[in-house]
Design a protein around this nucleic acid. Sequence first.
DNA 1: CTTGCAAGCTACGGTGCCGTATCTTAACGC
DNA 2: GCGTTAAGATACGGCACCGTAGCTTGCAAG
Lengths: 191, 191
Amino acid sequence: MTSERRRGEVLVRAIHEAALAELVEVGLGQVSMEGVARRAATAKTVLYRRWASTHELLLDALAQAHPVEVPAPGADDLRADLIGALTLLTDWMRTPAAAAVSAILAERDRHPELVEALYRRVFDPRGATFTTTVLRHYADSGRVDPRRLTFVTTQIGEALVFKLSIDLGRVPDASEVAAIVDEAILPALGL
Amino acid sequence: MTSERRRGEVLVRAIHEAALAELVEVGLGQVSMEGVARRAATAKTVLYRRWASTHELLLDALAQAHPVEVPAPGADDLRADLIGALTLLTDWMRTPAAAAVSAILAERDRHPELVEALYRRVFDPRGATFTTTVLRHYADSGRVDPRRLTFVTTQIGEALVFKLSIDLGRVPDASEVAAIVDEAILPALGL
DNA sequence: CTTGCAAGCTACGGTGCCGTATCTTAACGC
DNA sequence: GCGTTAAGATACGGCACCGTAGCTTGCAAG
């Protein structure tokens, strides 16, 4: 019987992983210390020594989960940069962390404190949304009419990516992202 | 001690109402027969006599919940008809039934059978989506280029309504709906 | 008024999670 | 190697819900 008892950081990482997997699998309302401990093959005691509640454990796990990239506009090809920004979004949506985040956002109404903490500790440290960053850049350099940058037009890309994800049951692929840019965003910018 | 013991349809309606309220308040994963019985001020026995599980009870309750209206295009004012269609959507989104539906759709991944049954028993009986109905109508009468009616463009309105609902934390009002039509849908149609 | 049915009430054993306590034993620092 | 620390295992009383059973009682049809 090889024991291989885990300690410290290795153990914590395994618990974080188990917590996110549990979150995705059973939903926020059903995450339990017992469940996470079982999945991580450790004892409840170990969890309670570090975290006071499942929420704190989950926030900790999410904060460690790998971050979202930020788009870097190339300044000479709006269409390509928009596609690039939305592709960063769809790439991220395929990661395990995204599934965990959406499992929490789904319960927004029931657990506002958790959602708020999620933004404060995980999202806010980064900048604004994906296409917004690109559009601001092009508006600043005079290639896009700044009056076209409204609350609505800056949201079209993300809105359609989410809507298509729901309708299709999967994250949009490259050609679908291109269609969003060509058929919705660029026309809304007057191009 | 006035008794006023409810029977038959009156009782069933009260239970349906309690079930949806419970769903919205505690989330799909936490709906229990005991909870619904408590809220409806009746006995568990009464529930088990009629429904074998919380899912069947919820589906039943949703099927009874008041239906979604279908847009009737006026045929002479595209902008007004689009705004009308999206207003039907936002009106519905303010009803209790909508909150219940979204509580179920939020758990899509965890309970696909329930979501499927929801579509089969509640949504499919009605036609297509809101703006799609309007856009088809205008494309048929030659006032909109049919080539512009793609999977993406027909979803812009609904996509933005949902995205704004999430970002704002409330259902978009009349001026926001108008902005969606003017700044996103009409440009995408080439108008 | 009688009678049949269903609503309402109470109680049951079973299960899963809670949060804590106790004890062991493996891993690590020195 | 030796002692300290923390992981791991087990057990606890408490609680909420499960699904079922047995019984009382209001309601309504005849």
